[in-house]
Design a protein around this nucleic acid. Structure first.
Length: 485
RNA sequence: GCCGCGUUCGUCUAGGGGUUUAGGACGCCGCCCUUUCACGGCGGUAACACGGGUUCAAAUCCCGUACGCGGUACCA
């Protein structure tokens, strides 16, 4: 295999699923690791389940995640078009070739015919049953031609699956897998609406697009023998196969929308965007969900992932989605960010008039270590910009004692005399005061925190006072004495 | 039902015949730090599904059972 070409081939029957993104990521990592090409192919052959804005959502999700591709519907490429709905002639050409060679045949059975046959035989459309059906294997060629030309009669093209054979293939993640052809039905290749099924389209496109490795979810494993048979019938080489373990819901089973939501998990990538996760965190989490580097590293940049990735360290068993771990990774990621970067990521959501960029960055620096998601920061930053309009009642009840006003006043007086306005010095001032007054630190710091922020907990209060400045600090200390006495 | 795939702490996993009193991470619990809440640091809890083989030796190899997951469409 000289050049590596892989594809991510989502179907626009729904928005980009978190499991789909994981597949895309692994495909991407594999491509970049081996300096290969990544193709995005839209598999829109199901008209009935088509969702109009799904493709845009898929593109958006990939872009957000930092997964870029070399060829695709929006970037072009010499193997296009990259939407299967635009490639219909191709599938017809090869389907006709298969019919010509006796590897496939026309079938005219109605949905009711099929249902009756299944009830009667308890089996599918296969070597045992095809002789009893309406198809070009049993009908005369005159009759077949007549039916094909009759616009009131619908037809499909089916693969003629050989009898009593073993289909064997190697999977990079699982080794050799064998199926008996008796287990495989005569798969429809071209549907009565003229569009190909997944099986046909995927084989034709992977071959024409010179895909070297098929990396996809384990749910495709059972239909892989059909594809192998198709490659064989068309005289083409089968790409290398790798089936990824499925992502399971914490309650078991495929991570469906229903189950996921019950467990407080999002299924769509757009939900993760909306929930305020950083793309690096989602990517990092997904990378570790079914793959491991073989080292103890947990936090990776995308390029570190590319460097470390290999298909043979991908697991084989289904993996449960663990929201705790995602949250932890998101925390690790954001705690490593520079304040100016954070401000950029917060875009327009954190921009208080009258305060410059560096002031905002200082606020972020103070708040960031205690944030789980960046979007929490603006909502926690009020007291950096305006005096508290009221004081947390529970904290007042618990912490504001009869002597609190006295201590705040004492602190206020000492602070008044400070000219080099630094958090360290303010801390020193308070320490000195606790000694003079012979009281515990808590007697002073809690009421002061309440005065400055209106809250009972938060970041280091001396850092806050340093940033908001002397005037504001003194004003707030005065305010609380006035209001709570 | 049938076919396929899988099975190490609650979860993600390391390990692939002797290096293992089975290692790491998340979570949980405790301690320290901070006289706040977090962050951080330290420590603890907790697993080889079961039964047979093979072997001097099995979490590791083989078979069976159980359980889980997937597939069984003119859906992908």
């Amino acid at each position: 295999m000289s050049s590596i070409r892989v594809r991510f081939a989502p179907s626009p029957t729904g928005y980009l699923h978190i499991g789909g993104l994981r597949t895309a990521l692994y495909v991407y990592l594999f491509a970049r690791k081996h300096s290969g090409q990544l193709v995005l192919r839209i598999e829109d052959t199901d008209r009935t389940r088509f969702v109009p804005d799904a493709e845009a959502d898929i593109l958006k999700g990939l872009k957000w995640s930092g997964i870029d591709y070399d060829e695709g519907p929006d970037v072009g490429g010499k193997y296009g078009p990259y939407r299967q709905s635009e490639r219909t002639e191709l599938y017809h050409k090869y389907a006709a070739q298969l019919v010509e060679n006796g590897e496939a045949y026309y079938a005219f059975d109605s949905a009711e015919d099929l249902e009756r046959m299944r009830e009667r035989t308890g089996t599918g459309y296969n070597a045992k049953t095809r002789a009893s059906m309406n198809n070009s294997l049993v009908l005369s060629s005159d009759e077949v031609n007549r039916l094909l030309e009759d616009p009131s009669v619908e037809h499909v093209i089916r693969l003629k699956v050989p009898e009593n054979q073993k289909v064997t293939f190697d999977d990079v993640c699982r080794g050799t897998i064998e199926f008996a052809t008796e287990e495989i039905d005569d798969q429809v290749l071209i549907k009565s609406d003229g569009l190909p099924t997944y099986h046909m389209a995927n084989v034709v496109d992977d071959h024409l697009m010179e895909i070297s490795h098929i990396i996809r979810g384990e749910d495709w494993l059972p239909s892989t023998p059909k594809h192998v048979l198709l490659y064989r019938a068309l005289g083409w080489e089968t790409p290398v196969l790798a089936h990824l373990p499925l992502i399971l819901s914490p309650t078991g089973g495929k991570l469906s929308k229903r189950k996921a939501e019950k467990s407080g998990i999002h299924v769509f990538v757009s939900d993760y965007i909306d929930a305020g996760y950083e793309p690096e965190a989602v990517v990092n989490f997904l990378a570790l969900l079914g793959w491991n580097p073989g080292t103890e590293q947990e936090i990776f940049t995308m390029s570190e992932l590319v460097e470390a990735f290999s298909l043979d360290r991908v697991g084989t068993s289904g993996v449960q989605f663990d929201k705790n771990k995602l949250d932890w990774i998101n925390e690790q990621v954001i705690h490593g960010l520079q304040p100016s970067d954070v401000l950029d990521r917060l875009e327009g959501t954190f921009n208080v008039e009258g305060y410059d960029r560096s002031y905002h960055e200082r606020v972020i620096e103070i708040l960031l270590p205690r944030a789980g998601k960046l979007m929490e920061i603006p909502g926690q930053a009020d007291y950096f910009f305006v005096d508290p309009s009221d004081y947390d009642e529970a904290v007042v009840a618990k912490r504001w004692k009869a002597d609190s006003a006295k201590f705040v006043r004492a602190f206020s007086e000492k602070v008044h005399a400070v000219d080099r306005w630094e958090g360290e010095r303010l801390h020193g001032v308070m320490e000195g005061l606790t000694k003079d007054l012979e009281v515990g630190f808590g007697k002073l710091i809690l009421p002061v925190r309440l005065a400055i922020t209106g809250l009972g907990s938060g970041p280091g209060i001396f850092d806050v006072m340093e940033l908001i400045g002397k005037d504001t600090t003194l004003r707030r200390l005065g305010n609380i004495i006035e209001r709570l006495g």
